[in-house]
Design a protein around this nucleic acid. Structure first.
Lengths: 112, 112
DNA sequence: GTCGCCACGCAACCAATGGTTGCGTGGCGA
DNA sequence: TCGCCACGCAACCATTGGTTGCGTGGCGAC
């Protein structure tokens, strides 16, 4: 019973810079490579590359506006990603719980 | 209000191979680089490198046994990692919820 | 109109990382 | 003691996250 995870989606949100970008986009509603890089410790070009990755997995969408390219978070897709986080977390949680129960059972049987 | 995340811990569980390794270790209780690589699509050496990473952030511990090096999951540290997953997930969830509420409010105000 | 600013895309380059193969060494069982 | 086998180390390769440098095309000011 292995945990089924969309590796592309996971690795997209696995990068700390991309996570912060999603944070910023969620906070402001939208943003461009330039505005994002203003609030990040990396250059505009680095941000642009990350935006390509996020766009490829559908976590963001672009709308060209004049000479700007405005990015917005796809809430449905982000919700899917969040669900995956929860899945992995709860699966491991379940395993840890079981281990804990077994450990307690052993402890009890040794005490008697 | 940015999400405080231990990037080292997160990136340790961010790699799909390392996640599957943790899965295997949890399922079997313990394992060596060789036994893990038997159940993974990568070589023993690749697994060994990942074990170094996992050990460095404290997610696993080693106990040398004869000519083997037996690895076990540190449940406390894994629980911490799971908690971080939950944190990020719930933070994004909250933002998504707020956006949804705002969207609904706008929709209502337009309908009246 | 045209001129200049500025957001963007493209390209070359660099370091770190996840992967490989090859080889040497040291326990343990026959 | 001899051979097997798990391990560590080293060299190497591809991908990726980052940089700098440069060309181009909208848009506002004059």
């Amino acid at each position: 019973m292995s945990i089924a995870v969309d590796d592309d989606l996971w690795s997209a949100i696995g990068d700390p810079t991309r996570r912060r970008m999603l944070d910023l986009l969620l906070a402001d509603g939208a943003g461009t490579a330039t505005t994002l890089s203003d609030n990040l410790p990396v250059t505009r070009q680095a941000v642009a590359k990350h935006l390509v990755v996020l766009d490829r997995v559908g976590l963001v969408h672009v709308t060209p506006e004049g000479r700007e390219r405005r990015y917005r978070v796809d809430e449905v897709q982000l919700a899917r990603a969040v669900a995956q986080l929860a899945d992995v977390g709860s699966a491991w949680d379940a395993r840890l719980q079981r281990i804990k129960r077994i450990a307690e059972a052993i402890e009890r049987s040794q005490k008697k």
